[in-house]
Write a protein that binds this DNA or RNA. Structure first.
Lengths: 277, 277
DNA sequence: AATACCTTTACGCGGCGTAACGGTCT
DNA sequence: TAGACCGTTACGCCGCGTAAAGGTAT
């Protein structure tokens, strides 16, 4: 019979952990002294102790190891558990590799002294009910007119907005021949009580986007858009819809360009192999 | 000014986490109401919130992000932190890949219904003071004679053994021509008071080994040795010394072969590329 | 009587989720 | 006045390290 200290040395498991394993029923001492409470282990428990260490080093959690030992060493169950862990580990590796890719991309970007390096987030824009107005413009600068029309109509229809509203502008397409820009502006609505010929009420589904929020004038938009587009390519995503902006602080709420806060969103999905054309 | 719930929606950070970030000084509200304690955030804080999410998704811990923001966005420091993280992530990946390799090896092994699958541990056998007796044998079965001599001499010299002792047998080499086996048996000693012509007292340095502990007769040794040798090859290690056994329960302490507990140790080191011969 | 070893209890780490209990706003 | 929102406090997860406070063996 070995006292815990001796068994600890022989098994290379710390005394603390042996007590812990006893507590969770993973490795209980052969015998516990009734009066002193001392734990006594037998040499025959060394193979089990070593097995625990081996499974731990394969990446199994203590709970999983408990299951391993309890389930009888039937080979089928054993193999299943191994294969499940193989899956988990592959996923972890894939995840870390995607992080590593992004980190390396960011390191390269530091060369360009780009102020937005490391600012892009992949997130979901939640499903929401919106009121929308879509029209064709000659220039981006005319977007303000769309907002005016939308706001006026909403006012007339007594549309109720939620406390937290999104003002978004979706770029549907640029037609170089006609020099036209197809833009849709949207506001989140709480309830829509009326109807209008100009406006459309609809539900926008949740979307996965690459998002970058910046502060400042719209002169930065071109650079930001290019940066996000590059980021998507470099990080194994592909475009999955029309890009849009969310105006958190806009000419409607402040006069100073430097105070504008804009979120640039590129709908994305994981890149699927090559597309056969 | 946005209440925490609104800012939570706009930033995609849960209310709980916003409060936590306030607590650790990572993102403090623009303003806190003196009377109600309500936190109020400004839209201008959205870029910072998004940046926090971005850095988190790169794998930075909150503490590291705090440092990021505190350190000024000087590009040099920024790049250093990125490169450090790149290193950490590569190491994590390498570690997971070695685990994955071992798991896959174990899965293949289940085919063979090998009872020792998933029992091998890489551990360090600690540095220790030993008394040793080395001789050449015709057969493994003669190893008992070495132990008898060692024990007798130790008895004569009144060698003091520690409570936790290792009995090891090192296989120095098999010479097929002379049909000789060069074996050294060792016992851990506490103190060595005398000296002997037969025995040697020495210090054995700590060694990294692949270890497998099994219970049963020595008939299993051949299979076990082959399994461990294969495991070492398959898992990118190479032999780094003479293999040895640790006898935890041996003929000296029990008569039943089925009760023997033996630890098979192969000294190893990570495999270094090819060796030019 | 000193020392080495044993016992139990409990806190810390990190990044959250979750819940309990009570005040505030509309 | 209800109900949505805010506040603080605190526990759980997981695998350990670390330490305090006290009993036991030699």
């Amino acid at each position: 019979m070995l006292k815990i200290g001796d068994f600890s040395i022989l098994s290379s498991i710390s005394i603390h952990m042996l007590r812990h394993y006893d507590e969770i029923g993973l490795l209980t001492p052969d015998h516990i002294d009734r009066f002193t409470g001392y734990r006594y282990y037998s040499e025959e428990q060394l193979p089990a102790a070593n097995r625990i260490l081996a499974l731990k080093s394969l990446g199994f959690a203590l709970k999983e190891i408990t299951r391993f030992l309890g389930e009888s060493p039937a080979e089928d169950k054993f193999r299943q558990l191994l294969e499940q862990k193989e899956n988990e580990k592959s996923n972890e590796i894939r995840f870390l590799e995607s992080q590593l890719l992004r980190i390396r991309h960011a390191i390269l970007e530091t060369e360009t002294k780009n102020e937005f390096t490391g600012c892009i987030v992949v997130k979901e824009i939640p499903k929401r009910r919106v009121v929308s107005y879509r029209a064709k413009l000659r220039e981006y600068s005319q977007e303000g007119l769309l907002w005016e029309t939308l706001n006026d109509e909403c006012c007339r229809l007594k549309v109720v907005f939620p406390g937290t509203e999104y003002n978004t502008a979706i770029l549907h397409g640029v037609d170089p021949d006609h020099e036209e820009i197809d833009v849709e502006v949207q506001k989140t609505v709480e309830r829509c009580s009326g109807s209008s010929e100009l406006l459309e009420f609809k539900t926008v589904e949740a979307e996965l986007v690459a998002s970058l929020i910046f502060q400042g004038g719209y002169g930065k938009l071109k650079d930001v858009n290019e940066y996000v587009a590059g980021w998507i390519r470099e990080n194994n995503w592909e475009l999955n819809g029309n890009i849009f902006n969310i105006y958190h602080v806009s000419p409607g709420s402040t006069e100073q360009e430097s105070g504008f806060v804009t979120e640039v969103c590129f709908p994305i999905r994981p890149r699927t192999g090559e597309i056969v054309s």
